[in-house]
């Protein structure tokens, strides 16, 4: 490490406890090539940071000293210093990286290469591609089990969840889901896998041990045609008893009881709601609304939208920086 790198690192290490930095939600703006940084206390955009072309997936390293950004049209994953907004270096990512997930080892990124029907595994320390796995057409949703043993890629046109053994980096199962699967998350200590299907209009729940489908969640919003109900991103509350599901052009979030798989509520948010992120104590939820170009802040306890924050064009991904 050269002195050039030590100084900012020292500064960052010193400044965090003293400045008591506010927590932030980082939002990628797909059509602006920027990230909007929202202060969760003031609920205002405090910084707008340029990125590579068409930023979509965004996630932080476990110590939050690095932020990884899928710059889809630059065909790279950018690694940014979140303090300075400086791009430190690019990771090899395969073509058109759309969405990714960081393995619990904090070292391996599993990246969906949308145009190539490939999942790329990248070692972020050695900055090299460890494996490329052939999956279905238009891979998008990425998840990794809490124990790190299983990674999931969903493919939008093949309509499958592909189960990857992270030890061998090979597929060990492929399960059909409804049309255009978009997002996947493990739940309940890794016992369940949830997959949303945008055109199918459903969320499927799989038992991880045998990859069997155990539930399918349907949605119905008053005054919205069922074809417009298109589940995309979703997140769980800490107790994993509740899931919030973005319904795309239905412009609503669904509040799902994760134990009974029943929908309890719908919350009106911005247009074509896409992905979301909680604040640290999960009292607030921030949704990206692609068409209206804003972020809706939802009060989780009251299940109500409380504020709209204008960001860049076509906000896509969201990630918390505590």
């Amino acid at each position: 490490m050269t002195p050039r790198f030590i100084l900012p690192a020292l500064f960052a290490a010193l400044s965090v406890p003293t400045l008591a930095q506010a927590e932030e939600i980082w939002v990628t703006n797909e059509k602006d090539d920027t990230v909007s940084v929202i202060d969760t206390t003031t609920m205002e955009v405090v910084r707008t940071i340029p990125t590579g072309e068409r930023p979509r997936g965004i996630t932080f390293s476990h110590d939050f000293s690095r932020v990884y950004i899928c710059a889809s049209d630059s065909d790279t994953v950018q690694v940014m210093d979140p303090d300075t907004g400086e791009i430190l270096y690019d990771l090899p990512s395969g073509e058109d990286p759309e969405q990714f997930v960081l393995h619990p080892d904090d070292r391996h990124l599993y990246i969906a290469n949308e145009d190539d029907a490939i999942t790329t595994v990248v070692d972020v320390v050695d900055r090299r591609v460890v494996a490329q796995i052939d999956v279905g057409i238009e891979p998008e949703g990425m998840a990794v089990s809490p124990d790190g043993k299983i990674a999931i890629t969903t493919s939008e046109t093949t309509n499958m969840a592909h189960w990857i053994d992270t030890e061998t980096q090979k597929l060990f199962a492929n399960t059909l889901v409804d049309s255009r699967p978009r997002h996947a998350e493990f739940a309940k200590d890794g016992r369940e896998l949830w997959v949303s299907a945008e055109i199918g209009g459903t969320v499927s729940v799989f038992s991880v041990s045998d990859q069997a489908e155990i539930a399918k969640i349907n949605f119905a919003v008053n005054g919205v045609h069922e074809d417009r109900i298109q589940p995309v991103g979703f997140e769980f509350t800490d107790d994993e008893k509740t899931a919030f599901v973005a319904l795309g052009p239905a412009n609503h979030l669904a509040v799902v009881n994760a134990e009974t798989y029943e929908v309890e509520d719908y919350i009106l948010v911005g247009r074509r709601v896409w992905h979301m992120a909680f604040n640290t104590d999960k009292s607030l939820l921030f949704t990206t609304n692609g068409v209206s170009g804003d972020v809706t802040v939802v009060d989780v306890a009251k299940r109500k939208a409380i504020k709209t924050i204008k960001v860049g064009r076509f906000p896509w991904g969201a990630a918390l920086r505590p």
Binding site: G136, T157, H162, N174, L176
Partner: peptide
């Protein structure tokens, strides 16, 4: 081609 990609998993 799209069909075949799905087909190869099945």
């Amino acid at each position: 081609e799209d069909n075949a990609t799905t087909g190869r998993f099945l």
